[in-house]
């Protein structure tokens, strides 16, 4: 299991919860489990998200391992200049 922090405006889809618990050992499993548990997140996940895992931001890295005590933050997909 991993605790995932959901950003403010998406908490509408998690019954207001800032942090939700999902069973996952990789990024891909985590995103799949999130959408399965909270279908309202599907659009944003499809539009693009990054994951911050223990303070490092990962973009589209499906196989990044997630430990039970990892800090996981859902973030939008970002671009730079």
């Amino acid at each position: 299991m991993a605790d995932v922090t959901i950003w403010g405006s998406l908490r509408r889809y998690t019954d207001g919860a800032e942090t939700v618990e999902v069973a996952a050992s990789t990024s891909r499993e985590l995103l799949e489990a999130l959408v399965a548990a909270y279908p309202g997140l599907a659009d944003q996940v499809a539009a693009g998200v990054s994951l911050s895992i223990d303070g490092e931001v990962y973009k589209d890295a499906w196989f990044t391992p997630i430990n039970p005590d990892s800090e996981v933050i859902l973030m939008p997909l970002m671009v730079g200049g």
Binding site: T5, W7, S52, G55, E56, E71, I73, M75
Partner: peptide, 10 residues
């Protein structure tokens, strides 16, 4: 520090 956008800074 837990940043204002979520992640804890290294």
């Amino acid at each position: 520090t837990k940043s204002s956008y979520g992640p804890t800074f290294k």
